[in-house]
Measured scan of single mutants.
Amino acid sequence: DETGKFLVLSLYDYQEKSPREVTMKKGDILTLLNSTNKDWWKVEVNGRQGFVPAAYVKFL
């Protein structure tokens, strides 16, 4: 199980638009929880879990 094993870097600021999403700032290091959807990845940032656009992050 690779859940929570990968870190990704936020390339852009992102403001959550729904309760299922999370806000991140450019340069944030996020824990990747799920990347099965090619468009939206589930991450943990600042103690919160939610989705961010996959195009806004990259693997470290």
Rank of each mutant, 00 (worst) to 15 (best):
K25C: 10
G4V: 13
T3G: 13
D28V: 05
L11T: 06
L9Q: 11
Y14F: 08
G27N: 06
D28E: 11
G47H: 06
A55N: 12
Y14V: 02
T23Y: 05
G4A: 13
K25Y: 09
F59W: 09
W41R: 00
E44P: 00
W40E: 03
V52C: 04
K17V: 08
E21M: 04
V52Y: 01
D1Q: 14
W41Q: 00
L11M: 10
F59S: 09
W41Y: 10
L11Y: 05
V22F: 12
L60P: 06
S18R: 08
S35A: 14
G47Y: 04
Y56K: 07
A54I: 04
V52A: 02
D28R: 03
K5R: 13
W40Y: 07
S35E: 06
Y12Q: 14
L33G: 00
A55P: 08
V8M: 09
Y56I: 07
F6A: 12
K42N: 06
L30Y: 08
M24R: 00
G27C: 08
V45K: 11
G4R: 14
L60T: 08
Q49K: 10
A55V: 11
L60Y: 12
V52R: 01
N34G: 07
V45G: 06
N37H: 11
P19K: 10
F51L: 09
L60W: 11
R48T: 07
G50V: 03
E44H: 05
S35D: 11
L33W: 04
E21C: 08
K26H: 06
E44T: 06
V22C: 08
W40A: 01
K38Y: 07
S18K: 07
L32T: 01
E16V: 06
K25D: 03
Y56C: 14
L7I: 09
D28F: 04
T23A: 07
Y14S: 02
K42F: 15
E21H: 06
E2F: 11
T36M: 11
W40T: 01
Q15C: 12
T3I: 13
M24T: 04
Y56S: 11
A55S: 14
P53T: 03
K42L: 15
E16L: 07
V8C: 13
K58T: 15
K5Q: 11
E21Q: 10
E44Q: 09
V22N: 03
V57D: 01
K38M: 09
E2M: 14
Q15W: 11
V8N: 01
T3M: 13
Y56G: 07
V8F: 07
F51K: 02
L30V: 08
L9M: 13
L33M: 07
G47L: 04
G4F: 13
K17N: 10
E21Y: 06
S10W: 06
W41F: 09
R48L: 07
V22K: 01
L9E: 11
V8H: 03
P53N: 03
L9N: 02
F6H: 13
A54G: 03
T3S: 13
K17W: 03
L30T: 01
K26G: 05
F59E: 10
T31F: 11
Y56V: 06
N34M: 07
D39G: 09
Q15H: 13
Y14D: 02
V8L: 15
G27F: 04
L7M: 11
L11Q: 05
V8Q: 02
V43H: 00
L33E: 01
S35Q: 10
A54E: 02
L33Q: 03
M24N: 01
L33D: 00
A54K: 06
V57K: 00
P19N: 10
G27S: 03
N37I: 06
K5F: 12
K58M: 15
T3F: 13
T31L: 15
Q49R: 10
L9G: 02
L9Y: 11
G4N: 13
V22Q: 02
L32F: 05
K58G: 13
Y56P: 00
S10Q: 03
S18H: 12
K25W: 08
N46I: 03
N46F: 07
A55W: 07
A54D: 01
L11P: 00
V45Q: 08
A55I: 12
M24G: 00
R48H: 08
N46K: 09
L11S: 04
I29H: 05
L60I: 14
E16D: 04
I29W: 05
K58W: 09
V22T: 05
L11F: 05
G50M: 02
F6N: 11
G4D: 11
Y56T: 08
W40D: 01
F59Q: 10
L11I: 11
V22D: 00
L60R: 03
E44G: 05
D39R: 12
G27I: 01
K25N: 09
T31P: 08
R20H: 15
N46P: 03
S35C: 15
T23L: 03
K25P: 01
K17A: 11
D13V: 03
K17Q: 14
F59Y: 11
V45H: 13
S18I: 04
G4H: 13
T36L: 09
K58V: 15
D39H: 14
D13T: 05
L32A: 02
D1Y: 12
F59I: 15
V52Q: 00
G50E: 01
V57E: 00
F51P: 00
L32Y: 03
Q49T: 13
T36K: 12
L33R: 03
N37F: 08
E44Y: 05
K58R: 13
S18N: 13
T23F: 04
T3D: 13
L60F: 12
S10Y: 06
S35G: 10
V43F: 01
A54V: 05
I29Q: 05
V52I: 10
T31A: 09
S10I: 06
K58E: 14
V52P: 00
L9V: 15
P53L: 05
S18E: 09
Q15K: 12
T3A: 13
D28C: 08
G27W: 05
Q15A: 12
V45T: 11
V22M: 09
K38N: 11
T23K: 03
D39V: 13
D28I: 05
S10N: 03
K25G: 04
E16P: 14
W40N: 01
A55R: 14
T31V: 15
E16G: 15
E2L: 14
D13P: 05
F6Y: 14
D1G: 14
S35L: 08
P53A: 03
P53K: 04
D39S: 10
K42W: 15
A54F: 02
S18Y: 07
W40P: 00
G50S: 01
L33V: 11
G47D: 07
L33N: 01
V43Y: 00
D39Q: 11
L7V: 09
Y56A: 11
I29N: 02
K26F: 05
P19M: 08
P19S: 11
T36W: 10
E2P: 13
W40C: 07
E21F: 06
N37P: 03
A55Y: 09
G47K: 04
D1E: 14
K17E: 08
Y14N: 02
D39I: 13
L11R: 05
N46C: 09
G4T: 13
W40M: 06
T36E: 14
R20G: 15
I29E: 03
G27V: 01
T31H: 09
R20D: 14
N46H: 11
L11D: 03
D39Y: 15
L7T: 08
A54S: 14
G47Q: 06
F6E: 09
N46V: 04
L32I: 07
V52E: 01
K26N: 05
D13S: 08
P19E: 12
F6M: 14
F51A: 01
Q15G: 07
D28N: 06
P53C: 06
T31D: 04
T36S: 15
K38W: 07
K58P: 02
E21T: 08
G4Q: 14
S18V: 04
T3L: 13
G47M: 04
L32K: 00
T23D: 03
D13N: 08
L9A: 06
K58N: 08
L33H: 05
S35N: 13
A55C: 14
Y12R: 13
N34K: 06
F6P: 13
D1V: 14
L30A: 08
L11H: 03
S18F: 06
Y12M: 13
E44W: 06
K58Y: 10
E44A: 09
K42V: 13
G4M: 12
A54L: 02
S18C: 10
K5T: 13
K25I: 08
V45Y: 09
K25R: 12
E16R: 11
Q49L: 07
Q15F: 14
G50P: 00
R48E: 06
L60D: 06
Y14M: 02
D39F: 15
W41P: 01
R20T: 13
